[in-house]
Design a protein around this nucleic acid. Sequence first.
DNA 1: AGAGCGCGCCTTTTT
DNA 2: GGCGCGCTCT
Length: 772
Amino acid sequence: MAADPTTTSYLDSLNDVQRQAVTTTDGPVLVVAGPGSGKTRVLTFRIAHIIEQGTAPYEILALTFTNKAAREMKARIETVVGKRASYIWAGTFHSLFARILRVEAQHIGYPSNFTIYDTDDTKSLIGSIIREMNLDKQVYGANAIKNRISSAKSSLITPKLYEQNEELLAQDKLANMPLVYKIYAAYVGRCKQAGAMDFDDLLFRLYELLQNVPEVVEKYRKKFKYVLVDEFQDTNTLQYAIIKRLVQYPQSPRNICVVGDDAQSIYAFRGATIQNILDFENDFGTFGIKTFKLEQNYRSTENIVNTANAVISYNKRQIQKSIWSDKGVGDKIRIIKAVDDNEEGRRVADTILEQKNRYHLQNSDIAILYRTNSQSRIFEEYLRRFNILYRVYGGQSFYQRKEVKDLIAYLRMVVNPNDEEAFRRSINHPKRGIGGTSVAKVTTLARQEGLTLFEALKHVALPNRTRHAADGYIHVIEKAQAKVDSADAYEVADMIAKSSGLTDMLRSDKSIEGMARLENHEALLDGIKSFVEDDTVIDTDTLPDKSLATYLQNIALLTDADEGDATNTDVVTLMSVHAAKGLEYKSIFVVGLEEKLFPSWMSMDSLDGLDEERRLFYVAITRAELYLTLSYANTRYRYGKMVMNEPSRFLAEVPADAVENTTGGGRRSNDFEFDKVARQREHRARVTGVAPRNRRGTARFAAPKVDPATFQPSPTDEVEVGRTVMHLKFGEGKVLHVDGGTDNRIATIHFSELPQPEKRIMLKFAKLQVLD
DNA sequence: AGAGCGCGCCTTTTT
DNA sequence: GGCGCGCTCT
């Protein structure tokens, strides 16, 4: 196709290697991309280029590591190719595969309403199995077994293969857990029976599907003309096997592009292997593989890039490349030495204030990165005292909170009554007098008769009073089930919140924590409501699905980082180094640089472990554009005990000439004074109950821009091109365009108050008031 | 069956 | 230091 003006304009903004990586669309391509080298630009332009050349967007599969990365990518492609971008199959492995499995589940004996078990469900189910097998749970730790099962699945090892694998059996014997293979088999059976898949199953079951059902694999091979994989260094054996299944077959065009950086591989702990990059070169070597190395770093100053290079050179095994920058030497790296974790927190907050003043930085230019999520607390404390707004990513997500999971358990029961973990969670919560003994009876009957727990509950012999309670529970679930096809997710959820007694139970708890729980409970209902009312078009090739089942599958794959940034965007970011991958900030603080913390004590006994920690440190420092500050404390509290730590070995690997000269220890004379005042303030806050809790608040769901009381939705046939309309959430907007079928009209509306003003709105769900 | 108390474990990192 | 689990008593 001849280059039209738009085509050339985006290609012009790339350097030579980038442009080649973009325009070499056909055949296998490996892009090795250093930090800040424009990897995302290449990926997005490449997809845009493929579309410009005439491929339909829905024929492109783009696998990213996080939902956020996928969303960003789509938004950026949209600026080149327009609205068509929304049809691209871009998302995480887990979310896109769940979407396929929902359609194809029947081929592998699963309902399309399958439940997704999260980590808690998995652990709890493994716990039940251990108990039922009468094993000592001191010896058989649920966590260890979960990891064992997870890595088996990630390496394509079924229970059957596990049982035949001498090496794995020997390892288990050595760990005093010779029966892991039996637990694994039982676990897989129970998941299947419950109509549930854990995170690994979303990959593994899809792999099985592609392996065993020819018409399905045909269908998706035909559908996906181009496949792209971001962060390829973090894929595991199973993920790569799926990719190969899709693109590696006779007569395949092998239009596969993987982008990655071996130096940024930080997920070996969950089965990711750099081996995939090497294998990729072998697997596609005979099919004219093209390799491009992006080595110019456009993000960071020379000081930062040189430091990163120096640090990573301590790792022996790596793909040769030389990352360079021409952004000038830049500021020296600062190192904060603190006597304890408190001082570390205070001095980091102090430095943030100083940088904001000196360099005119916004809060949003700054991030604090730590090795473990538990380190966030102390920084939160001092940022709060200094009146610096912040947001913590990671840790417990909203949907992991107990009170939220309690209501979700009921919703899961409604959608999939076979869901064993949802049953256990909801059966006696709120308390209705069905305790351990009764549940044990139910479980026994279920095992004997091969029934699900919910079925068994209906038939099991129980004392009168308990029988009555059980019938009440069954009624709550079944009444909601009767409604689930005719009502939307919110109506069902609202009904069950009341009929289960959950709302009443939370209302009666007047303690501060109780009120926070009630708030979260209500926030969940609000969230479901906005899911139902959300009338923007996301995946236009499928009709919007407001069912409870869809809602549940959506939230199961949400992580904390995906949740709304809607309210206040000028905040300092706090997160783990892992969560920071792919992001960049003008100023970065890497904190807690101590032996046994960073590198983690868990990884210190192996060279591979240490290498991965070093790559993690490499990822951390390469997030910085202009300013990099490293900090450590000589002592800190861990499990309530004071521990002493040596400074991290990684600090010694930072070149001395890149570091700012700090003469004289750096203690300020008023440090102690400040401490005293601050402590008193903190104490007062605790006593009066104003102490900050619930760090993420409930504002996660965007507040309506319009007063709902005066808002009057107009009939949708009044929505026409050129009219000014009011939307409950997006405010005032102008209708640019209306399309779609008669029974599904879609309006394109420009909302001037939004950062991305153009929205596509489905009129059949729309809440719009026509103003003139 | 449920409330209350003490013990022990936890902390890597995430979809 | 805090949470979850199990034991014991009612």
